[in-house]
Amino acid sequence: MKEAVVTFVLLWAGVWPLIHRGLVARYDLNPWKHSGWAMYSTPKPPIVVAVLKRVEKGHAVLDERTLPSAARDALDRFRTRRHAIGKFAEPRDAAQAILETSSDVGSLVVMVQTFHLDPTTARMTSVMDRYVYSRRDFR
């Protein structure tokens, strides 16, 4: 039993970081967290989250400052979780909070932009993820 615990700890310290590296690449997990021992290996800039509401001829950016505090809090919580666990965090709860508290919004799009430092060019690159929600999704 004790040997099993030692084995578990050594696997956690020695093998999990390699799996973690793969999860960072695939799901944008935070390289500075989750005991991947990759702090100071790569930058992890803040993510940018924008919410767009559907209007007559397309979409318009929703000013977060006009949202009720419950919706703003839900969006902040999503930002924090997204920065930590990457694509394992989706903005469903934040979208629901916005739709529930904003009667003029029928559907919305949550855009999530994450930034990485390209090791070849030494310039920032970005990836955009898009999530579409309507009131139907929460009935």
Binding site: A13, G14, P17, R21, P31, G36, W37, A38, M39, Y40, S41, T42, P43, L117, P119, A122
Partner: peptide, 20 residues
């Protein structure tokens, strides 16, 4: 852990030219 703090720097590729 010490080994991996070095290996991860290699795997992310930002230390060869000092980019990080």
């Amino acid at each position: 852990i010490l080994f991996h703090t070095g290996l991860q720097k290699v795997l992310y590729g930002h230390y060869v030219h000092g980019d990080f």
